[in-house]
Structure formats: structure tokens, C-alpha cells
Amino acid sequence: MDILNQLKSKFSEYVIETHSQCGDATLVIKKEGVIPLFSYLKTSPELDFNFLMDLTAVDYLGREGSRFEVVYHLYSLSKNHCLRVKVDVGEEDSSLDSVSSLWPAANWYEREVWDMFGIKFKGHPDLKRILMYEEFQGHPLRKDYPVNRRQPLVKPVPMN
């Protein structure tokens, strides 16, 4: 809780809201704050978040405000505390800064988020699809991807 208050006062221009229920300290921020906030979380000796546990995204299609939310789960091995950071990302400019320079683990996570949700990460060394094939059109975990749309690489053999 004190981590949240500390971060809230330090990064007040970026923080949209915070909440904490049963120990899941969560910080919701604007995407402009990605680099300053995450560099602080990584390098600050008293926080020392040296482990990026997870990086994923959520598509809130039809929601008021921004459509996507990129979610970071951080953990500190030395201090044994964790933090969840959610970053609001709008539909029209669905891009935000990459954190792969801070945590190398973010490299493949960000590729996955790009592949599945079509969110771009600026400054990523090699942002290409990781799960789907290059010929695949669209991003399958977006809520407006048609549920029945199939894009086979090998065309089905016609029955005769």
C-alpha cells in the first residue's frame, strides 16, 4: 500500500488510479508514463522490481475511454513484493513504449501482444509475430476478430 502511495505522489501526472484488494496492488497509468515509471521501478534500490512476471493485454471493446489495457506484473526477488501496472492504450494510436530494454523478458511478451492484439511497442528490437504465421491477417484476440474466420496455410483438399 505504501508503494502505491509513494508512486502515486511521485508520478502524479501519469497515474490515473490505484487500487489494492487482498494484496494485489494495482496502478493504472497513462502510456506516456511507461518509460519514467518502469525505469524507476527497475532501478530504485528500495523497490528493486527485477523480475517481469507477465506482460499481456486486454481488449475492452466498446468501453468508455481507451479500448486496450496492457498489463504488467512485476516482482522483486530481493524485497519479495509485487505490483501490477495497467497502461491505458487507445484504439486509434495503439502503440506504447517498449520495456524490453529494461527487462529482456519483455521482448517475446511484447511480440505476443503485438501478434494477438495488434498493439505496437515503440523501440522494440524486432517486433514481429511470434505465435501466428506471417501470412496471417489481423489479430485474433481482438474482440472484433470474427470468431469463425479461418486462414489456412494449406488449403483443404476438395472432396470428390
Binding site: 485474433p140 476478430y145 489456412p152 483438399v157
Partner: peptide, 14 residues
């Protein structure tokens, strides 16, 4: 039954 899976290999090979 999704975007990623082949619906039976007999659609590709006998």
C-alpha cells in the same frame, strides 16, 4: 474450433 487449429488432418492429407 478456433483460428489456430486445423479441423482434422484429413482436410490436408488422406
Amino acid at each position: 474450433d478456433n483460428y489456430a487449429t486445423v479441423m482434422g488432418i484429413d482436410t490436408i492429407i488422406p
